[in-house]
Design a protein around this nucleic acid. Structure first.
Lengths: 331, 331
DNA sequence: TTGTAGGCGTTATCAT
DNA sequence: ATGATAACGCCTACAA
């Protein structure tokens, strides 16, 4: 296995200076065709290609974007990651996937991202605390940050998200029109930011309809199992007549878990005995086995927006986008 | 927003040389406590932290591992990515997620990975062709490559995979014992490597049982929709009496799609009229709505193995690991 | 068009 | 323990 060739070696082989070699590999540099050909030939013979690491050091741009993810239980993450990497790569940017699930120290991850000189940092659906970013070790020359698919509680960090207020308004209108009057809501985590968003609006809009009591089911995490567990706990503790008639879950994966338990363990018909609504519109929610009513975020637009902000084609500022209700038979 | 401080600036502030600054940030360097304190104080005041990019250039190691993924439709990818990033990060390695779905040029992605000086490249479930790697622009000093969760058709590129032969042997034994005699197999892509693996063994073991005819259903891609479509095509074209009695799908996501169609569009009972088996044991397959019989790969072990190979704690060589059958009610 | 000097921020090695 | 020199491989700016 030959060692990696450098520009200097190619220069010697081609009989030019190494700066000419660099020029041969630079778009729009002033160099004669003859020189370029000579260089390219020598480069191919020596198997040379520019070292992007050295280039990054010199240009102070890495063309790498860090994406922080803390929730891998939600299948919805995968298609979004696919689109995101695709769009970033189309702009010549690579995606560094950083796992910040509960085992990791968020501040540490941020410091690391800082030291690696990423061009930007995307917090994808993660609930960072303001205090985390307030850490004194951060701040100076930290890469631009963006919050994708979640509200940003952090001043100066723009969020690109679905308009939650509008979404919940549509959802509650829909459920009210269908005749449901005893709403429940399942949250997936204890962090304030999350809860405040969807749950808050859900409760608000029901109150406007004159429905004051919103039963809350709390799942431990965002996963089908946690959703199932929370539903089991609630259904075990209540009698059929006293129960909610519609359960809105903070996301689809919770909803699928809850639906499974309602149907298979408690023999409830969905939606006759208990209607279920999710959020995200994951592929499996649309399967005949579930037919889950859900709400689709405009992920493509959202992704385009972040990428454009990162590449400077668009102002970096908070933006909320409109999703759409996807009514199916579960509610 | 202050500019990033460098070791040199910290050195001036602390009244030492920049090499002393470096030492203060290096494990086990010989430096007096007094110096270190002085430096750390100055560093904190200036908000300095080492530039890992420059370090990488000097040490010739980036602590970055590229992970190539071409199939984002399979939810199974997500938990594996979670574990993989977690393990890599525990070793101080970051994951660069590279999307090589059909829109991208694989050779181009490899060249890019080469130029970025990654410490290693993992082909996660992707079927690279030998010819792709044979490209003359690659080869010299290319980072060590590993194929994860798929057989490697490439000499010199070790694969870490589940023992497909053993898996299919177990599966066929199980199905035969259950009394099925008219097997079908659904493939998810036209690449030889894939088809050869699971389908080949499946057919072989049925033949050993004296069953010669294996019906093949071909899905266009690996997705629930593609699985549904393939099942629909097959079921539409056959009469109930002439059909297969058990359908093994190359992975769970295909199986779920097929199952949906069989039950909801053709009114078939699973497993009474058509048994279904998948592969991967994704979380939703275990849900009461599906109860999909599947086969679980030893993903944790496989991931540990690659990571250990990358970090040099283990010889880089092909290894097949044993998974386990997960029998449920679908077959 | 081409060559030169200097710099990007670190690390390795040697000298003090 | 600390300082100094050279190197990592490239880029920008300037001179020829």
């Amino acid at each position: 296995m030959r060692k990696r060739a450098t520009a200097k070696e190619v220069a010697e082989a081609a009989g030019v200076s190494k700066w000419t070699v660099i020029r041969a590999f630079t778009q729009g540099a002033s160099i004669t065709d003859a020189s370029r050909q000579k260089v390219l030939q020598a480069a191919e013979a020596l198997n040379y290609s520019p070292n992007l690491l050295a280039r990054s050091l010199a240009t102070n741009t890495t063309h790498q974007v860090a994406v922080f993810v803390d929730d891998f239980a939600n299948p919805h993450k995968l298609p979004v990651l696919e689109r995101l990497t695709e769009r970033l790569q189309a702009e010549g940017l690579l995606t560094v996937l950083i796992n910040i699930n509960r085992h990791f120290d968020h501040v540490h991850a941020l410091i690391n991202a800082d030291q690696r000189q990423f061009d930007a940092v995307i917090l994808f659906g993660t609930a960072f605390r303001e205090e985390t970013l307030g850490d004194r070790r951060l701040g100076a020359g930290f890469p631009p940050m963006f919050v994708l698919a979640r509200d940003s509680q952090i001043p100066g960090v723009p969020a690109i998200a679905c308009n939650a207020e509008l979404a919940l308004s549509e959802i509650v209108d829909y459920l009210f029109d269908k005749g449901y009057r005893r709403p429940g809501f399942m949250t997936g985590a204890r962090t304030l930011s999350t809860a405040l968003g969807r749950r808050h609006h859900y409760a608000n809009f029901w109150r406007r309809k004159g429905v004051e009591v919103i039963t809350e089911l709390a799942a431990e995490r965002y996963s089908a199992q946690a959703g199932a567990e929370a539903a089991r706990t609630y259904l075990s503790a209540t009698s059929p007549t006293s129960r909610i008639d519609v359960l809105m879950c903070e996301n689809d994966i919770l909803a699928l878990g809850a639906m499974d338990v309602a149907r298979s363990e408690f023999g409830l018909g969905v939606p006759q005995n208990l209607a279920v609504v999710g959020f995200d519109n994951i592929e499996l929610g649309g399967a005949p086995a579930y037919e889950l009513t859900s709400y689709e975020q405009p992920t493509d637009e959202m992704i385009n927006a972040v990428v454009e902000m990162i590449t400077g084609k668009r102002d970096a500022e908070m933006v909320v986008m409109q999703g759409r209700l996807v009514p199916r038979s579960s509610a």
